[in-house]
């Protein structure tokens, strides 16, 4: 298994406030990696740092590119898709238009076929193809945000708390779909979650983030068996 994303000494700050204090982690090709942590631990900032949305230093190597200091749209172009926290849909565009924006950088002729493909995976989106994304339910918007990210045919998808604000049954359906995409398509994912039960269920490895530093890492089985993790994140 080859390394797809290699992060070392990743630091990020908002103005004078440093939020990440030197993170080291990797995502291998085809892996689903989970980052757990409480509110304010720096999970969202980690993903934003990878996407060039905050002031960042350190080393990030992705698929042969060094991406620290690159602009978000350049990072998107080399194959990292970012589903931001809380409905990363473009609310004034229709569902179909959102998907076309996801393919903005593509020049091939298979965009329409890909849209059909994601409609098959998320049938609720097809039924609402011509509706404004802002009128969708929370779960549908999250599916749309993920489908739009996948329209760019990314090598790695960053998912920022996909379960946030969704009903448990919707969340379970969403994670089942994500798990299938990871298993059957070999889609690499980096998932940030507070809902540790769900996240550990689909990931193969994970990291635990506390106040901007990684405190525990291991396979998801190891994390699920770790007493500290169980007490802090699994509620047992």
């Amino acid at each position: 298994m080859s390394v797809l994303l290699e992060v070392s000494e990743l630091r990020a700050s908002y103005g004078a406030v440093r939020v990440l204090h030197g993170l080291d982690f990797v995502v291998n090709e085809g892996e689903a990696v989970v980052i757990l942590g409480a509110n304010g631990a720096g999970k969202t900032t980690t993903l934003r740092a990878l996407s060039g949305m905050v002031e960042t230093s350190g080393h990030v190597h992705f698929d042969g590119h060094s991406i620290v200091g690159s602009r978000s749209e350049q990072i998107s172009r080399i194959g990292i898709a970012h589903v931001p926290q809380g409905r990363g849909t473009i609310v004034d565009l229709t569902v179909a238009e959102n998907l076309r924006i996801g393919a903005y950088r593509r020049r091939d002729r298979e965009v329409a076929a890909d849209i059909e493909r994601w409609y098959d995976v998320f049938p609720k989106l097809e039924a609402r193809a011509d509706q404004q994304a802002g009128n969708l339910s929370g779960g549908e918007q999250q599916m749309l945000a993920i489908a739009r990210a996948l329209m760019s045919r990314p090598k790695l998808v960053l998912l920022d708390e996909p379960s946030l604000g969704l009903a448990p049954i919707v969340t379970q359906e969403l994670f089942r779909t994500l798990g299938e995409l990871n298993h059957t398509e070999g889609l690499s994912m980096l998932i940030v979650e507070q809902n540790a039960n769900l996240a550990l269920g689909i990931g193969s490895r994970g990291y635990v983030l506390e106040t901007g530093s990684i405190v525990v890492s291991g396979t998801t089985d190891e994390l699920a068996g770790d007493d500290g993790v169980r007490r802090a994140y699994l509620g047992v």
Partner: peptide, 13 residues
């Protein structure tokens, strides 16, 4: 897309 959400548009490239 930019008018509606420049951040989401940027993340889509």
């Amino acid at each position: 897309a930019v008018a509606s959400s420049s951040e989401s548009a940027r993340l889509s490239g």
